[in-house]
């Protein structure tokens, strides 16, 4: 792995030098030292680091928009979310769920098991199964480490550029980390690629069904969001910026949904309304 990493970085760093003949002398000993100090930070699969990255990104999201102050609501969402997450391949993560006080209609996740949805989206929901489905979609991103994979890619490019400049010291490696977390926060507003979203939808449907809820809860939410979007309300604009259009998502889900009978529960009687 280390060898592969070094080769990748070498390509990133050295290739431009060789091709374009820049007169930069690289201190490879310094690079090696720097790598040993930084590679564990971003490159290796390390749960502790993943959680820390997620914590910092989430902290910044919450710095922009606070959690709703309704304790009962937050505990309810955590119980539903934790139950759904328990059906996943990462059931032992310390999952945390929060409803943030924002009118926009969207949901977010960060590495390590941090999941958020906005008050605006929550108010669109009509049952516990629909809530479970929204959370399950976001859990899907964490299970597949979608954000982390992009951050890692970004880290390679970022460190590569710094290494070309051959000026990566401890202070700057800290700055690089900071920038990276900033990029993670920005990703919350920019969104992931379409394929990651479709994948999270498919995982979301399965986790919803595994938890005993109606597997069609996610398609139903997508239809609700779709018609909210048709009204062109500004509240859904970010959702459409960070996710593919709900109709495209429904089209992508439809073939796989044929295998689901829809016999799970909707649980609308105890759904906590705000």
């Amino acid at each position: 792995m280390k060898k592969l990493l070094f080769s990748t970085l070498f390509l990133l760093v050295a290739a431009p030098v060789l091709v374009f003949g820049y007169g930069i002398s690289l201190d490879f000993n310094k690079i090696k030292d720097t790598l040993s100090a930084t590679q564990n930070l971003m490159i290796e699969d390390n749960l502790e680091q993943e959680i820390e990255i997620g914590r910092v990104i989430s902290g910044r999201l919450l710095g922009a928009h606070n959690l709703m102050t309704d304790k009962q609501l937050q505990q309810y969402v955590n119980k539903v979310g934790r139950w759904v997450a328990s059906q996943s391949e990462r059931s032992e993560l310390q999952w945390q769920f929060g409803v943030i006080d924002a009118d926009s209609i969207n949901a977010f996740s960060a590495p390590g098991g941090y999941i958020f949805l906005t008050k605006g989206l929550y108010q669109l929901l009509n049952s516990e199964a629909e809530l479970a489905a929204v959370l399950a979609h976001e859990i899907g991103h964490v299970v597949q480490k979608h954000q982390l994979k992009i951050l890692k890619k970004s880290a390679l490019i970022h460190f590569g550029r710094l290494l070309v400049e051959s000026t990566l010291d401890q202070k700057q490696s800290g700055m690089a980390m900071n920038n990276l977390v900033g990029y993670g926060a920005e990703m919350l507003s920019r969104g992931l690629d379409k394929d990651s979203e479709f994948e999270a939808d498919k995982i979301g449907v399965v986790l919803t069904a595994r938890a005993g809820y109606n597997a069609y809860a996610l398609p139903i939410v997508l239809q609700e969001i779709g018609h909210a979007g048709m009204n062109n309300q500004s509240d859904v604009r970010l959702m459409f910026k960070t996710h593919p259009h709900p109709n495209d998502r429904l089209d992508e889900l439809a073939p796989g949904m044929e295998g689901f009978s829809g016999d799970g529960q909707m649980v609308d009687d105890r759904f906590y309304r705000i």
Partner: peptide
Amino acid sequence: GIRGIDEESLKGAELSEEQLALLESYQV
């Protein structure tokens, strides 16, 4: 014209330890 969360508010936001602690307190 995005209400709620937008890119600028996220970019400029400071980490809130207080909110993170609150989030953790709801964990089950």
